[in-house]
Amino acid sequence: MTDRSNIPVLVADDDADIRELVAFKLEQAGYAVTKVADGSAALDAIRAHPPRLAVLDVMMPGLSGIDVLRQVRADGAFDGVRVILLTARSRDHDVDAGFASGADDYVVKPFSPRELLHRVTIVLQRS
């Protein structure tokens, strides 16, 4: 397996079970994972220690994942941060809004952790 121990990844989800599950899956694959439970904490974490990739839930208390994404994309200092949105919102216009805001990928719940891991790998390979 590729050594991913130096690749920092942020996981932001207010659902503790999903946050732990995604973090666990990525840690098993070797990523260095930081976990936060809301959008404001995600933005703070990105500004303090920009990860290579952030997995953001869309519907979080306070700042949504889309809000976080827009603020990240508006700041050129974080051009290197790849973002995958993980959300239960599956309508076309939700997906369109995610990509229009600058998401690199969009994963809809219910999701397969294995597929999410593949997408993380692919998005990081593209960058």
Partner: peptide, 10 residues
């Protein structure tokens, strides 16, 4: 709690 958000073999 997890099942509604998961799919696949797991």
């Amino acid at each position: 709690g997890l099942l509604p958000k998961l799919q696949g073999e797991p």
